[in-house]
Design a protein around this nucleic acid. Structure first.
Lengths: 237, 237
DNA sequence: ACTTTAAATCATCGACCGCTGAATTAAACG
DNA sequence: CGTTTAATTCAGCGGTCGATGATTTAAAGT
């Protein structure tokens, strides 16, 4: 993370550059703090917390480093803010999607249906949410692989939805032992994490036969794969 | 990564501390460069490349930072050396395990068998290889989630074994389309990555019902889960 | 109109970063 | 035994890091 980038374009309208003090009211689509979050999200998702300096973020966003401290306090505060921003939206939609499916399916819950409902908001945000959501997913993917702060962070933000998911899977797989349900979820979680990363690894390995950017296909295959896995793990004496 | 640790114990025999020059021949089990690699492996696996300074490694290993440059040149050179050290051992064993299974099974290859053979060396090293191997696995897990250098690194070190795995799975699932085989592998790879991390996430989520440290169980469940997934994905028109 | 507050830059501080050249000590080699 | 080479610490260089206090500008409140 060291890009000089000394003169990135004509620097916007009337080259207001280095001008100190509060800027005149602009009708821009979203505030400066959102812009900073977008940039930080992008960089953190690619290089991790320690791979990005606040100078990197400030330069890329075209603001002074002091402004990041003004809004977010510390570097860790910025990171947390990035993590939190979309978590709430995502969790609300995933819970709603699961509840809607449970209501619709009544007694006829299937593992495929539950898992698809769980994944659906990810597909939609990934496809229609713009690049910010893809960066966010990649960030989650990295957090899930981190043994130090990852576990705690993931638990804090996402355990509620996951418990609801497992609850519905328990209904869809009557007689399943809880232990097996959790182990099966562990495998699904790993597959999901890798998909969220969109690292392009599969594209290269398959010589272009599979495109990890095809989210709809990726998630459909994951639901089918995992549903079969759940059945196999949970249907034993 | 900032630990003071000003006086970690009595500093060994006769407190040879700050003593300059080549040390007298010691009958220690392995050389200083191996010790440095062990420490670096541990720290990198927990905090990532950018989360660890060469001073951190040097302090933890009880040597001067200049010694790391003497052995490994740059920080990246140290990281690569850590990555490479065990990759060769692991790959040789995984290929041998797959070949042995192919020979034994003849025409009666099963997905469970192939996947178990693929996973077996991981179980054994994880159980009997000491903490170094666990740190190494966690490092791989993080590399696999990294979108920048992870994909290239993983491909360089591990693609050979993976191609052999898919080849055998193709034989075990006659009629499967290559595209489906790759997508199924993608899901297995994700599950494996998460297991390798041993982040303790499942332990907490299941309130202690599942212990991610139980490698034998984790890998047995993964093989069963993934084999069913492969069948489900590959057995369609 | 005056005051207060919000939003921004500037200049800088002390700490830490990766890395290097010189010195030192002991082993290996002849 | 003398020379070369391997293994180590020391001292420090130039650069970057996260963070802060002072200052400036414009909006908001009264």
């Amino acid at each position: 993370m060291t890009k000089p980038d000394p003169e990135a374009g004509p620097a916007g309208p009337e080259t207001r550059k280095g001008r100190r003090g509060r800027p005149p009211k602009s009708e821009g689509p979203s505030g400066t703090s959102e812009l900073i979050l977008d940039v930080a999200e992008d960089l953190f998702s690619k290089h991790g917390l320690h791979g990005v300096s606040i100078r990197d973020v400030a330069n890329e966003a075209g603001v002074d480093t002091a402004l990041l401290h003004y809004y977010f306090g510390t570097k860790l505060g910025l990171f947390d803010a990035v993590f939190k921003r979309r978590a709430e939206i995502l969790n609300a939609e995933r819970l709603a999607s699961l509840d809607a499916y449970a209501l619709k399916a009544g007694d006829a819950l299937t593992p495929e249906g539950v898992i698809s409902a769980f994944l659906q908001p990810l597909v939609e945000w990934g496809e229609k949410g713009g690049p910010g959501w893809k960066h966010y997913f990649a960030l989650i993917s990295q957090a899930n692989a981190n043994p130090v702060w990852g576990g705690e962070t993931m638990a804090r933000y996402f355990d509620d939805v996951i418990r609801r998911l497992i609850e519905l899977l328990r209904l869809a797989l009557p007689g399943a032992r809880d232990e097996d349900l959790y182990w099966a979820y562990h495998n699904l979680s790993g597959a999901l994490t890798l998909t969220l990363g969109e690292t392009g690894r599969l594209d290269r390995l398959s010589n272009g036969l599979c495109r990890s950017g095809d989210l709809r296909l990726a998630y459909a295959n994951m639901a089918r794969f995992a549903a079969a896995g759940f059945r196999a793990l949970c249907a034993r004496a």
